[in-house]
Design a protein around this nucleic acid. Sequence first.
DNA 1: AACCGGCATTTGGTATACAATGCCACCCCG
DNA 2: CGGGGTGGCATTGTATACCAAATGCCGGTT
Lengths: 247, 247
Amino acid sequence: MSSPAAARGEKAASQTLKAVLKLRDLIVSGELAPGERVPELQMVERLDVSRTPVRAALMRLEQENLVEALPGGGYAVRRLSEPDILVSIEMRGTLEGLAGRLAAERGVSAAHLAEAGEILDGIDRIVRPLDLDIDLALYVDLNAGFHALIAEMAGSPALTLEIERVAAMPFASPSALVPLEAGSPATHHVLTIAQEQHRTALEAIAAREGSRAEAILREHARNAQRNLRRALASGRQLMELAGGRGR
Amino acid sequence: MSSPAAARGEKAASQTLKAVLKLRDLIVSGELAPGERVPELQMVERLDVSRTPVRAALMRLEQENLVEALPGGGYAVRRLSEPDILVSIEMRGTLEGLAGRLAAERGVSAAHLAEAGEILDGIDRIVRPLDLDIDLALYVDLNAGFHALIAEMAGSPALTLEIERVAAMPFASPSALVPLEAGSPATHHVLTIAQEQHRTALEAIAAREGSRAEAILREHARNAQRNLRRALASGRQLMELAGGRGR
DNA sequence: AACCGGCATTTGGTATACAATGCCACCCCG
DNA sequence: CGGGGTGGCATTGTATACCAAATGCCGGTT
């Protein structure tokens, strides 16, 4: 193809990454309908890469549960039902709970505890003030950092990787369902509760109370389930993001 | 790709599958040392397929945690420590526990219960007699079937898929108890215990006792941890434990 | 109207070429 | 003699052309 794509200020590091990003966007934005077939050649023109990275991207998205391999060959956009998403969240909670328990049982370094504490302090500074105008972007950042840290504290790369994998599933990320309106009291309330769970979970880990940490982290993920249900009840927007299937 | 013969683990249906199988074997058998780079071209000749399926296989094995992507490109055989494997097993137990709980909470069809019951009857016929000469191959088959059924009873494709993925990690499969010798009393004992857990887990699911099912299934997976520890303690090389995976 | 056969499309796979990258050994210069 | 290049080699990522098998659609035939 053309030689210096980067010279024009394009953002693609590798063609495969470019394809993954674009494809994921097409699916999540609903431009590719659930159940729809994803022909490679069509994607070649739509994504402006050759077949090779398209195929690589499809394989990766298969791992992410965004597309499924068809028995006869090829791929189709996965249909995501509400229960599917709820289970994904439950899986994340379960695995994060496992991570928390392992971290508690094995004990974690002071450095880890300190780092986690700092993140939580940061969240406090966002959530504690009665100022309703919350910096959601910053919250999402810190929140993701805290969850990543919990995974890491278990000291098992395999577990960390698995949590990441599950969290990559649509709407299963710890930060996926925060998009409530930035100014509302409901948002403030939800975040306050979540932060309290962060605190107690970290406390339990520090105190080496394994099952307590596990239970809290599981329950913590259920916040996301509740948020999802509420978002769905108050309008289908999220489902459209998930891939359009209004139903 | 998938031909009709794919059902009973016959010869490679597709080149990719052939590559995955062979490559997995090379890694698990230790012919490719942990940490070693896996050059594509070298694999092309060793596996007797072209680059495309080799790359596909490497991507698959990456998600199975058998190889890891190197920052500069390419892949290397993953180093697996004992704790890593133990955590993998713990993850499987945790997710199977989740599946059992969900199945219990949601209730399962009579057909599913009957099918599971039949499998357990089959295992009984192998394990119950005091004949120590156990048909391990058949046991492994039935055992894998039972575990697959538990996953399926949760009614969530995403969860089933995730359990399969975790079980595909080295030595994490429910059937990876192959360090057992076919004739020994110890083996008979281990299998008897495991089967009792199968029974009680199914009973809990049928009775819709969610947390009981979850606890039993978790504990059940810990058998595998114990077996692995014992095998390691008795001086065997990890690589000898290759073992079958479900499917 | 139902059925049948053939054609077009699509995919998995092979082969090949080429650019970018990283690594290493070797060489030149101080 | 040693350090800093520096060029070459190996390898990966990407593009592209092509092929065989599978799939499904379309039109013709009975």
